[in-house]
Computed example of a mutant assay.
Amino acid sequence: MNLFVIGFGYTAQRFVARHGGAFARISGTVRSVDKRAQLAPYDIDLFDGTPPATTTLAKAAEADVVLISVPPGPGDDPSLTAFGDAITTGRARRVVYLSTVGVYGDHKGAWIDEDTPLAPEHDRVQARVRVEEEWRARIGDRLAVLRLGGIYGPGRNALVELRAGRARRIVKPGQVFNRIHVDDAAGAIIGAIRRDSGGAWNIVDDEPAPPQDVIAYAAGLMGITPPPELPFDSAELSPMARSFYASNRRIRNINSKRDLGLVFAYPTYRAGLNALWADGEGR
C-alpha cells in the first residue's frame, strides 16, 4: 500500500514511526522547510494552503490510504479545497480523518457515544463537523473519522509540564476529560485502515478524569509537591484553553474496541504516565 499524509503532526509522525512498515511508499505534506528536513527519509512536499504542485496532487491520487492530520482553517478547509478532487477520484480505499471529541459539545458530565448528536459550540469545532460532512459527501464509506480525546505521550505529558514549571492544577468542579495516549491513537489509525468499511469512532481512554488529578498523579511519580489548586473562575487562560473547559462529558469507547480491534496499551492516564515515567520522561 502507498500512504499519503496531509500534515505530519505529533500523531501522524508517531503513527508512521510505529506502523510505517505496513506501507511500500510513504509521502505527504508539511508546512515548513524545517519540518520537511526532519522527515527527510520520506517523500515530503510543502503545502501551506496555496494550490499544491501537480506532482503532489498525483501522489495523493495514487495513494491507497490517505491520512488527514491537519485542522480546518477559519473559512474553507485548505486540505479539502486543495486535495478533495484528487482524493475523491483517486485510488484511495481508505481516507482517515483525525477529528476531535469536541464535536459533541457539552453534556454536563453525562456519558455519550457515537450515536450522540453532534452539537459543536465553537467555531473551531463547528468547522470540524463541516469538514467531516464534506468528506463523507465526497467519498462515502471510504471515510473513517477518528474523534480523538486529549492526546498525550512522549514529550507531551504532565511529567514534562511539571519539570518545566508550566503545569497548573486548574479546578472546575465536576469537570472531566477523556484522553488518549498517542500510541493508542496510532493503533486506532491502523485499525481503521484495515477495516473493510468506514465510519466514525471515539478514540478515548477508559477513564475520564479531572485534569487536576492527572497533575497530582504525575507529581506523585516524580516525588514532588503538586502545584496548588487554582479555581477555574480566577485562572488566567487563553480563549482556546478556556474553550476546552466549556464542554464536560464522559465518552464511551466500546465501538472503537469492537470495530477497530483496538486494545489499549494505556487504558488510563495512570497507565500512560507510569510508562512515560519509566521511560525517563520528566526526569
Rank of each mutant, 00 (worst) to 15 (best):
D85G: 04
A86F: 14
I44G: 03
G109T: 08
D34M: 10
A86T: 07
Y42S: 00
P117F: 09
A37W: 08
P41H: 05
K59Y: 05
A24S: 14
Q38Y: 04
T55G: 11
V96Q: 12
S32V: 11
D113W: 11
V33A: 11
P41L: 01
R25Q: 14
I44C: 08
T55N: 15
T88H: 05
S99V: 09
G109S: 10
D34L: 14
I112M: 01
T56R: 05
V95G: 00
V101E: 01
P51Y: 11
L67G: 08
H107C: 06
T56N: 00
K59T: 08
W111R: 11
E114C: 04
G102Y: 11
T88G: 12
S32H: 12
T29I: 01
V70Q: 03
D85Q: 03
I87D: 00
I26K: 00
I87K: 00
A58F: 08
I87G: 11
S32E: 07
G84R: 05
V30H: 08
L118T: 13
L67A: 07
L46V: 13
V103G: 08
A22H: 15
V30D: 07
G102C: 04
P120Y: 10
L67I: 11
L57C: 08
G102N: 05
D77F: 07
I68C: 00
V33G: 04
V96M: 08
